[in-house]
Nucleic acid binder design. Structure first.
Lengths: 223, 223, 223, 223
DNA sequence: GATGAATGAGCGTTCATTCAT
DNA sequence: AATGAATGAACGCTCATTCAT
């Protein structure tokens, strides 16, 4: 499957970028290094100027690809969720029973990403770290409605809806499948954050991942 | 109780501010108007310069109270959670049974804030709106660990821990009381956001608040 | 005469351009659309990038024709004055008496351009508008003397000198024929501007054109 | 009279600046040196950064006074015309006859400014030079109507109207007093420019100033 | 000849902050 | 204690231009 994935190009909403970063070497360097740089200094301190310095290129070149750092974050976020969705679809594909299928899906979205799959210029371990810290900033803005209409969060929402459908298949009577699905996705990130920074308000440790908590939670809820 | 509350001063960690904004008229105007301004233009666009203009005061005066806008956000956030904790404590005080007590607590933290209690210079309806949008930005930073050590998030965590304890009282066997508690708090905000912006991935509407979803979720989980 | 004009190529100083825009389709599109774009957004906001976008071409292509936007303006200006001179020569050709000849010449340079002659890719109505607004910027620069030596304003000056000669023929005793001629040309543009923007300091209206004022002025001056 | 002038503060429309440059030492240095710098390098090349360097101050300080270089130009222009108006009023004050009064007014607005009156931080000789070159750029913009409504060109127009009234007093029958007045002002500048750069299309020399031409023109026109 | 990509330089602006009052 | 003025630093962005194809 990894072989297969390596040929598969993750597709991100065109409206987010001016020029597809996957279409050139510079574009790939922008993506690759923005992940490292955001991880290193945080999104607030991150600027195109610093990124330009890192990739040995003028910041003006980066503007060819993205209008501003916010759009770049939306891109990274979309890429992450597209990748996540792909994995979820692949890993649950062969499972016919509803419950094991949902369990697998939850595992996919909540497990720690342990090794770099190395089949692209994107380091998924680091990307996962920045998604935990920065994902919500991509939509917690004053422009969220306008950007939502332009499809900026389409992939993210599609993933949640897939999860919701799996929940419905498990228990068609359940009243809050969408809310549960969005809570799972959000919690998968949030508990990771808590385990790293606010350990007193989570039960997750490096051994006990959010996965255990979520699997348990969903099982109790849907049964 | 409202009477009581009006005399009760919400106390916020001293390390956050340079001079207590509750100690002067200017300080109160800073708090009062920062809430309105952040609600209006968003935290990213918010600056001390703009706030200064709004309150008819020089920006340099605001520095007497807060070192930077991030600390002001932490203050507002802490104030919100202190206020929430106070309400939770008050409203659950008389309830002796564990389950109804927890139910009430969940209601308090997740219900829509409908009317302005008007007993302070703080507009809680608007504050609630900015907490939904900006709360996570107060800790999703590179300085989180340092600031956590200085107690910036103490009140927030104490509230979660109170909730966790109520969960434990309901079901001492349950393995993830802290994670569940933090998930409740997070979800209470997040589902509000979704209902306002991403309606396709929530079941909450203006009628069906996050409260219903959370009460149902917790009941199923702990029984 | 229109027939004749359509075959007649307005010739502009070679030193202004790198490649003659009349020699290719792209060149003509550059001229045609630069007139519309300058009219639309003003010369200050006008850039080759925006022009490139408008004509569906890369900005670098425009550099083949003009070194910079200033030279393009000089080109448009020269084209306008060459066209104006041509019309003046044509329309006064058959008139033998000095005074009616001068009167006709003044009419030609000062009248409102009402209809699009449509025999070229250049919209003269719009070009007239941008000449009113931008002509003086072509010479009010620090480089004026150098550019003047290179012949950038040759056509403009030749037109004024033609007018001066007509003035001399009317009244060989008059002491300021050149100043009067240049004032006529300048005033023909300036009063158009005033009538559109500063109506309190002109007597020109849409009915009373600069022509009336100028004819009257010259008549009184030369008699 | 010079004594009197030195106490008289030229007043410029408040809407043009953020902070009155006459109110501080830095403000005066900004005005003083902007005149020299614009004269030296031209308005197109002039930037706040360069001005900041010249006055040994950060460009950001200049923004306290003017939003942009265009507003600074409008300020200089307004100052010039206010100063001109003041001189015109003073020098014509004692003249009761209409014709000599008008002649004096024309002399005031068109004569070469020969010496620095030295009673302010403003060098009028240099200011006159930049007005000749840059004045028209203050209104030949896309924003002219909006700015006109905000009173940016009030002083300029008031001067023209004063001149117009003098013309009317000379000859109440004359049909184009406003156009003649605006032409005089414009020509006073334009002929100065031509004498310095396009000598072939003016009769003005260093000896024969625009004044002679204009006095003659007006006399012939109004008699 | 025309184009697309990339770039260096610098512009206008804002921000957070300091200093003097 | 509060304010106003001034500033250094850096941000986001655009421009004109070059280079390779």
């Amino acid at each position: 499957m990894d072989k297969l994935l390596s040929n598969f190009q993750i597709k991100v909403q065109e409206s987010i970028y001016n020029k597809n970063p996957q279409s050139s070497d510079l574009g790939k360097r922008i993506i690759q290094n923005s992940i490292f740089l955001i991880d290193e200094i945080g999104f607030e301190s991150f600027t195109f100027k610093k990124l330009g310095t890192k990739i040995g290129s003028n910041e003006s070149s980066i503007y060819r690809y993205f209008d501003n750092k916010h759009k770049l974050l939306v891109y990274l976020s979309s890429w992450y969720w597209a990748w996540m969705e792909y994995r979820m679809v692949m890993e649950t594909f062969g499972i016919s029973e509803a419950k094991p299928k949902l369990r697998k899906a939850i595992q996919v979205v909540s497990r720690a990403i342990k090794e770099d799959s190395a089949y692209t210029y994107i380091n998924e371990v680091v990307l996962h770290r920045i998604i935990i810290n920065e994902n919500s900033k991509s939509f917690l803005t004053k422009e969220v409605d306008k950007e939502n209409q332009e499809g900026y969060f389409f992939i993210y929402k599609r993933l949640v809806i897939r999860l919701k459908e799996m929940i419905c298949e498990c228990n068609p009577e359940y009243s809050y499948p969408a809310s549960l699905a969005s809570t799972i996705i959000e919690t998968a990130l949030h508990q990771h954050f808590l385990k790293d920074h606010f350990i007193s308000i989570t039960d997750c440790k490096n051994q006990t991942t959010p996965t255990d908590f979520l699997l348990d939670l969903v099982e109790r809820t849907l049964d």
